[in-house]
Amino acid sequence: MNGSLHSSPNVVDIKLKRGSAGLGFNIVGGVDQQYVINDNGVYVSKIKEDGAAGLDGRLHEGDKILAINGAKLEDLTHQVIVDLFRAAGEDVELRVLKKFPNHANGPTGSQPEPKSSVSLLEILVAFAGVAAVCAFIYMRLPRKHF
């Protein structure tokens, strides 16, 4: 790497303005908390929809943050990285290695579970409908009295 940050089409610079709730994303990684095996890098673990990053839309979960305001994040502990983010000021520039399509960061099998298209409310309504039909049929059956 010759001391320079990655220079590829997958590396982008993203400028964010810190909001009242911060930058609006969580990170994982560092030399003491490797997220990807044999990689001391820092990765975006969660984007808050209403935060600065979520509203901007360019930063995504799984992206690797290479630098903040020009400071490389290589070979640093997680706490040092967190401190750099906290001290970064209101206008923050991130150099980011975008997550490759179909590439999961983290341990094998860490793909997010697909979200169900059926809500709990829909299930309850369907169950109530089936119960009502069963009750109607039961009430209509002839009864024998002894």
Results as ranks from 00 to 15, higher is better:
residue 3 G to A: 11
residue 6 H to Y: 12
residue 7 S to Q: 13
residue 9 P to Q: 09
residue 10 N to H: 15
residue 10 N to A: 15
residue 11 V to A: 15
residue 13 D to M: 08
residue 14 I to W: 09
residue 14 I to P: 05
residue 14 I to S: 01
residue 15 K to A: 09
residue 16 L to N: 04
residue 18 R to Q: 05
residue 20 S to H: 10
residue 20 S to D: 15
residue 26 N to F: 11
residue 27 I to N: 04
residue 28 V to H: 02
residue 28 V to R: 00
residue 29 G to N: 05
residue 34 Q to T: 14
residue 35 Y to I: 03
residue 36 V to G: 06
residue 37 I to H: 12
residue 39 D to Q: 06
residue 39 D to W: 03
residue 42 V to D: 00
residue 47 I to L: 10
residue 48 K to R: 07
residue 50 D to T: 14
residue 51 G to H: 03
residue 53 A to W: 02
residue 54 G to M: 08
residue 55 L to E: 03
residue 56 D to R: 07
residue 56 D to H: 14
residue 57 G to F: 01
residue 57 G to H: 05
residue 59 L to W: 01
residue 59 L to Y: 12
residue 60 H to V: 11
residue 61 E to Q: 11
residue 66 L to H: 02
residue 69 N to R: 00
residue 70 G to L: 05
residue 70 G to R: 12
residue 71 A to Q: 13
residue 71 A to V: 15
residue 75 D to R: 05
residue 75 D to K: 10
residue 79 Q to V: 09
residue 79 Q to C: 07
residue 83 D to C: 01
residue 84 L to F: 12
residue 86 R to Y: 09
residue 90 E to F: 11
residue 91 D to K: 07
residue 92 V to S: 09
residue 92 V to R: 02
residue 93 E to I: 15
residue 94 L to G: 00
residue 97 L to E: 11
residue 99 K to V: 08
residue 101 P to C: 03
residue 104 A to Q: 14
residue 108 T to M: 14
residue 108 T to G: 04
residue 109 G to D: 06
residue 112 P to S: 10
residue 112 P to F: 10
residue 116 S to Q: 15
residue 119 S to Q: 11
residue 126 A to G: 15
residue 127 F to C: 14
residue 127 F to L: 13
residue 129 G to Y: 05
residue 130 V to R: 12
residue 134 C to R: 06
residue 135 A to K: 03
residue 136 F to W: 11
residue 137 I to T: 12
residue 139 M to I: 03
residue 144 K to I: 07
residue 145 H to A: 13
residue 146 F to S: 03
